[in-house]
Amino acid sequence: MLVIKDLHAKIDDKEILRGINLEIKPGEVHAIMGPNGSGKSTLSSVLAGNEKFEVNEGSVSFNGKDLLDLAPEDRAREGLFLSFQYPVEIPGVSMVNFMRTAVNEHRKYREEEPYSASEFLKLMREKKKLVEIDSNLTNRSVNEGFSGGEKKKNEIFQMAMLEPKLAILDETDSGLDIDALRVVANGVNKLKSPERSTIVITHYQRLLDHIVPDYVHVLYKGRIVKSAGKELALELEEKGYDWIKKEFED
């Protein structure tokens, strides 16, 4: 599904990703952990097509397509979804309008008829129930005045609406209380299928208790320095990152 080969990316001549290699197969859940500033969000942004970052080496193939060749909106329409670490507010644009435009753009891309207003509202009701999101969040402007937790839940709601093939959750669990964490984890698990893959970027085992990863990777200074099964996350929780840092100090 996703094959990343020797990916390098920089911003303002500062190299942040320094040769990432990663392969994700359909249905897999990969956790990416690592100290702050390692490049986890940069990796998500680069995959999603944020032009702030310049890819200077490497390749990414997504379901057989050259991902780096696609415009950000086409990557989304191809089924790549990013749950942002810091979702932005878009004042004046209602969630309903925003999501309806988004869903119909996806449908148009797949050469399907756009949803009518009533079809769309029905879909929205279903998904709201699925992810247990508060009904009034969708009556407001996109993320405007949302609390941190509401913003994260809203990301999961949008994921449910768009049914991506690959979802990247960038610290979606950070700053969530237990209830919100459960909502997020349930949302992800309910959408799980043999075709859909997930990248979970997190610092905490508590999310991985709910979303059990097939693999855990440690990103450090722009490289994946360690990969193992789910037990690695437990080890990291116990011992912190210092031992890894020591091992890979250059």
């Binding site: 097509g49 932005v88 925003f98 753009e105 768009l162």
Partner: peptide, 27 residues
Amino acid sequence: GEDQIFYCNQRGLSTEDAVGLIVNGYV
């Protein structure tokens, strides 16, 4: 903001549609 446009792009909206949506929301 670039970040607002990118957020919209990431949900499958073209930059034109994003600007249109934001401006219409604003007015």
